[in-house]
Amino acid sequence: MVDFRRLPSPDDLLILLTVARLGRFNAVAEALGTTHTTISRRILALDKQLGGRTLERTPQGWELTALGVDAVAAAEAIELSLGELDGRLSNSDALTGLLRISAPDGFGARFVMPALVQIQRENPRLDVELLSGTRKASQNRSGVDLEIVVGRIESVNAEPIFLTNYFLRLYASAAYADRRGLPGRLEDIRHHSFVSYVESALQVQELGHRSSQLPMPITSFQATSIFAQVDAVHAGAGIGLLPSFMVPASSGLVPVLRDDFHRQLPIWAIARPESLRSTAVQGVVAAIRQQITDRAGELSA
């Protein structure tokens, strides 16, 4: 007969699995509806039961020890078995729980959001949180299951998955073109107003005007939101450096120096290995890729 008193708590193992995926006790506590203190206490109890430390603190957040890796493997088996049981009881293979994704606001709204809606439609018991933010891949773990990031990937303690490239191009409103004219050469940008990100708040420098090698404009309108930038260009605030997928042909905006300037940037999905083994995260990555495939013309324009 199995002595259950000697076995680690399945609940504590599942908490460890969530820590491995999110990297921070605060994020785990929020996801599980409890407190940081409770999470810490449960991990300490698990360590005592297993006879060693399952986690170690690093500059990148909590990381698994060798013992922790073994414990997480057991936790993943428990999670899989519970998911199969839940599916049989509900006569469904639907996913449950909470899925957290962070993404740049433009790409997040245009491509990630439809993918998440699709996943949730197929899994109505799955809760979804989409966090908007244009930033580098997190070095200290962001408390999400999956990060979508733009630009060059530096060394991170996670697995990057290339999703697609996209283009930044110059646009202006027809009213601005009528009032100020349009530059005939890149050098003529210096005589115009320019719309872009707030340089002082920008983590992804490739998105800003300063790194574009374009001349400095007379004046600038800067915003942290790409939606505010698009609206500002529509309102005639200046020439904008915008993702082409945010400017459909029906937008009414006028391309500026299309044959002379563009910038191509990559988009990546990044997650811990433990998160990438999650069926929900795998489903989201596949759904985002499907969105990209189905709408490839918007990204290659």
Rank of each mutant, 00 (worst) to 15 (best):
4 F>K: 15
6 R>F: 07
7 L>H: 13
13 L>T: 04
18 T>W: 00
19 V>H: 03
25 F>K: 00
26 N>C: 01
26 N>K: 03
30 E>D: 12
33 G>W: 06
35 T>G: 14
37 T>N: 12
40 S>N: 14
42 R>Y: 11
46 L>G: 00
55 L>C: 13
56 E>L: 10
63 E>T: 11
75 A>M: 09
84 E>F: 08
85 L>M: 10
86 D>G: 10
91 N>Q: 12
92 S>N: 09
93 D>K: 04
99 L>A: 01
104 P>K: 11
109 A>S: 15
112 V>C: 04
119 I>D: 03
120 Q>V: 07
123 N>A: 05
125 R>S: 14
126 L>H: 15
128 V>Q: 14
130 L>C: 14
131 L>R: 15
132 S>Q: 15
133 G>A: 09
141 R>Q: 11
141 R>I: 03
144 V>K: 01
155 S>R: 10
156 V>H: 06
163 L>F: 00
165 N>G: 03
166 Y>D: 03
169 R>M: 15
169 R>L: 12
170 L>V: 06
173 S>R: 04
175 A>H: 08
179 R>A: 08
181 G>Q: 08
181 G>I: 14
182 L>N: 09
184 G>I: 03
190 R>T: 05
191 H>I: 05
193 S>R: 12
200 S>L: 08
202 L>V: 05
203 Q>F: 04
216 M>N: 15
217 P>Q: 04
220 S>C: 05
224 T>N: 13
225 S>D: 04
227 F>Q: 03
237 A>P: 09
250 S>P: 02
250 S>D: 11
251 S>R: 00
256 V>F: 01
256 V>Q: 01
257 L>Y: 05
261 F>G: 04
261 F>V: 11
263 R>Y: 05
265 L>P: 02
268 W>S: 01
271 A>V: 00
272 R>V: 03
276 L>A: 01
277 R>E: 10
282 Q>S: 04
283 G>F: 02
283 G>H: 02
286 A>V: 04
291 Q>R: 14
292 I>E: 11
295 R>Y: 09
299 L>P: 04
300 S>L: 07
301 A>L: 13
